[in-house]
Amino acid sequence: MFEAIAFYTFSAITIVMFTITVMSKNALYSMSALAAGMIIISGFFFLLDADFLGVVQIIVYTGAVMALYAFGMMFFDTTREVKESIRAPKLVFLLSGMSALLLVIALVAPIVSDHIEPLYPVVEGVENPQAVGIVLFTKYLVPFEVAAVMLLVAMISGIILAGKKMDKSLTLKTDGEDEFQNGGSK
């Protein structure tokens, strides 16, 4: 009963939030709605007994990714309304509808065949984070390490791409600052 109430409440909030994210013209509203939706998504993970995944969702998505977006948006002019010229609105909805149909077929297909057997069954008598750790560090150790290397590469590339000419301000430039920059850097 409580599961059903929680599920429907969370679904309604998530759908509304993500719709705001997709439809809003203000980038700041869009980002806030996305962050709220991410938090609510973690509620689904707690409902699904995936405690560790829920905590990771809050920490990584809402804590790291959305904070990164928030800091990244300081570089862009986000106070203006986003101007978007959509040339063929009918085509957009046609394409979305066809993708949705394909998606439904793709999702229904394995349920119809009904031959799914668990590859790594949930360990009995063990809490979810422990079970996740057992599988992650035995069966999925190599992908885990590759993911670590990938994150390192992404971090270095992010620093190098964003860090060039960091000493020059894009928006604020007063005379005093200019002189200071010319005097300060070489």
Binding site: A50, L119, A147, G158
Partner: peptide
């Protein structure tokens, strides 16, 4: 389906999303 593989893939998707955001935002700033 009482299978932990799904959660594993979800973890790797989270890792991919995090690195995608880092690289993407760097490119956008440039």
């Amino acid at each position: 389906y009482a299978d932990l593989s799904g959660q594993m893939f979800a973890f790797f998707i989270v890792a991919v999303a995090a690195s995608e955001v880092a690289v993407g935002l760097g490119l956008f700033i440039v």
